[in-house]
Design a binder for these strands. Structure first.
Length: 271
DNA sequence: AGTGCGGCCTGTCCGC
DNA sequence: TGCGGACAGGCCGCAC
């Protein structure tokens, strides 16, 4: 479910509630997430939230100076703001209870999400260490994509979804960006020109920014921290539009499995 | 080193 | 209705 825009939307939703508050306690209802939730996360108790940020699709809640919590939403996770004494619903796996009675509650039916502790600097955490640049940062460019792609024979779609190359581009936005740049998802990454990578980098930045502005994409179950969906689904150009006419040339859009993920594209406009 | 796949889970939908 | 199978926004870890 959540790609970068959905995680960013979640971050913006919870940040004002969290920053400056003290964590009264962490209630773990079900520790069996993607990795078992370790007791070290209980260090959060009694610490003050000095800031919240996002790295790739990870949410980082800074607690004091020397560490904090890491939350990943996996495929079906969401965080919502509620009162600590609200009755938990199905799949509500943990709560971050604050000193004002508010609560950040994690819900995740598929349990691919994660909760872990990190010691500062967060970048050294094993889950973050190998990650490539943020797509909305200066380190990300067409030149970066071009340079890193030389010699790579796999499909460009897999390449841009590889977190070591660039983070945050998931299955929806990979299809969208490739359509916007006119690049066929199966084209070998190493056989795309610098000029076309410039267009692709621009498309990635553009689609992510617009999706953030719309509060993310809700296809099935993504909800922001207020419990509301995102509205970018109506802006999607190819994703889940198999057989429907391409907005540019009217030919029917195609769907294929690439790297075990569904990919959507226009056979006419994308080469 | 790059690439391809299995696996982790539950829920939903579709065809029989 | 019931049941099996496919599929769903991520990503690690293992083979080759």
């Amino acid at each position: 479910m959540p790609e970068l825009p959905e995680v960013e939307t979640t971050l913006r939703g919870i940040e004002p509630t969290l920053t400056g508050r003290t964590v009264e306690r962490l209630d773990i209802r079900n520790p069996s997430l993607r990795w078992p939730v370790m007791d070290e996360v209980l260090q959060a108790r009694g610490r003050r939230v000095s800031g919240c940020r996002r790295r790739a699709k990870y949410l980082l809640i800074q607690l004091g100076a020397d560490g904090g919590l890491l939350i990943h939403l996996g495929m079906s996770g969401s965080l919502r703001i509620c009162e600590a004494n609200d009755a938990p619903r199905k799949h509500d796996h943990f709560d971050l209870v604050l000193d004002n009675g508010k609560c950040i509650r994690f819900n995740d039916p598929r349990r691919f999400g994660a909760l872990a502790w990190w010691d500062a600097p967060a970048e050294n955490h094993p889950l973050l260490r190998h990650l490539g640049p943020e797509p909305l940062s200066r380190e990300f460019s067409g030149e970066h994509l071009w340079r890193r792609s030389r010699g790579r024979k796999g499909p460009v779609k897999n390449f841009i979804m590889d977190g070591k190359i660039v983070v945050g581009v998931g299955n929806i936005y990979a299809s969208e960006a490739l359509f916007m740049a006119g690049i066929h998802p199966l084209r070998a990454a190493g056989r795309i020109s610098a000029v076309r990578y410039e267009a692709l980098a621009e498309a990635i930045r553009d689609v992510l920014r617009r999706a953030i502005r719309h509060g993310g994409t809700t296809l099935r179950d993504f909800l922001n921290s207020d419990g509301n969906p995102g509205y970018f689904a109506q802006e999607l150009l190819v994703y889940e539009r198999e057989g429907l006419p391409c907005f540019q040339c009217r030919s029917p859009l195609k769907k294929r499995t690439i790297g075990q993920r569904s990919s959507y594209y226009c056979p006419q406009c994308q080469r």
